[in-house]
Design a protein around this nucleic acid. Structure first.
Lengths: 231, 231
DNA sequence: CAAAAACAAGAGCACTGCTCTCGACTGTTG
DNA sequence: CAACAGTCGAGAGCAGTGCTCTTGTTTTTG
């Protein structure tokens, strides 16, 4: 167990680490990932830029820390959306998940872009980002699993060839009991559609097409619920 | 009509403009949009960086030119994929469109990211990018229109409320004859799913989940064809 | 042929990520 | 208690960026 002075020192370090993260997060929210500047963060905190490098060895590491926080924050929001409906109300839970995703994306567009937009050049997401990134898909898969165990089936399931079954086997095995191939494919498609709808809208590709994005998203969400057999 | 010297001068200018675009395109393919450097392009072309600014007034304008080229190139690829199948073979055309999209994205990941990834910080796509960006959705809508005129219907069409009909009316009216609300929503969903599937895979969000991305994409494409009533 | 416009080059400004060195301070240990 | 090792903050500095301004040259135009 560390002695008291050491703890005080560690606490001060944690405090400053937190302050750097907070200020970097604000800057991220204001101007986006690529414009995040270590020097600007240092300026705002009244310290030399070189001092920041004692806490984050590079800009990419700082960005990664923000990325992990974003994944966790979004994951928590989606899980809350899932939990807002009664467990048996599958469509309600689905709507909760889907609309939590879109709402969070609109509230934190730059963090969403950081997490799901094009990867920053030359930046490869390190391993510690994988786990927090799985929270959203996990919530979705848990819901589909519940639909499956209550005996529902997705509409017009296409025959899933053996090769594809094997390809998505890891996803199927994420839940207990495992998902059927048909449900696994439908769940992946639903996730792709949600992500596509949110991203296209957020990145401005739907502005010319859809007048009321929220209403359209609701329609898509409900149609996906029907396709998943949740209604 | 311009005189001969003027034409020669204009031709030289067009040539150099083209050379800058080509070199910038290579750099884009190598290191991605955010790493594109006007100075590096100038170096490679053996000219001063300030000279490049006579041809492109800012880095963003240069990036926009590359963006327009990317949209056009992808649009042409998708239209070729559409035209590869017999006009009456709706599912073949659908597969051609969908796989042309994914193939192009994998051949030009950075250009795809430039077009459909998170917008570069502080960069708003100007109006001249809108028209070329519409080629892909147009190809898709044309196909759905053909499906509609041959009397097919999407599976399990959800009731489309009047508000949503109005919201997507602009999309419906893109084709002649106009799309029904049910088909319009299904077409938008198909586009969102395709885009989501390609982006998630390309940006590395599926690596942990799907072993054979090409096979999975093919499965998704065929399921979407079924949902659209193309089979 | 002279005026005007277009052009390429260079210097320079303000900014970035990052490294290195320096002195000051803290906590541990002999 | 004193010496030592480790941490910390600050500053200078390097190499790079987008972009502007000036200077001199070339080309086109009236």
């Amino acid at each position: 167990m560390p002695s008291a002075p050491q703890t005080a020192r560690a606490a001060a370090r944690a405090e400053l680490t937190r302050a750097i993260l907070d200020r970097a997060g604000e800057q991220l929210a204001e101007t986006g990932p690529a414009a995040l500047s270590v020097r600007a963060v240092a300026r705002d905190l009244g310290m030399a830029s070189s001092a920041v490098y004692r806490y984050f060895p590079s800009r990419d590491v700082l960005l990664t820390a923000l990325l992990v926080e974003a994944y966790d924050d979004l994951g928590a929001a989606v899980e809350a959306g899932d939990g807002a409906a009664r467990p048996r109300d599958l469509r309600g839970r689905w709507r909760g998940i889907a609309h939590a995703l879109r709402t969070w994306a609109h509230e934190h567009p730059h963090r969403y872009a950081l997490a799901y937009g094009s990867p920053v050049p030359g930046y490869a997401a390190p391993g510690d980002t994988v786990q927090p990134a799985t929270r959203v898909p996990f919530a979705l898969l848990g819901l589909v699993r519940d639909a499956q165990v209550t005996g529902r089936t997705p509409v017009q399931g296409l025959r899933v060839p053996a090769a594809e079954k094997a390809s998505v086997a890891r996803v199927s095995a994420f839940t207990t009991p495992a998902l059927t191939p048909a449900y696994t494919v439908r769940a992946l498609m639903a996730w792709q559609t949600l992500f596509g709808a949110v991203s296209l809208e957020l990145f401005g590709h739907m502005a010319e097409a859809v007048l009321d994005p929220a209403a359209h998203y609701a329609q898509v969400v409900d149609q996906l619920a029907a396709d998943l057999g949740l209604s």
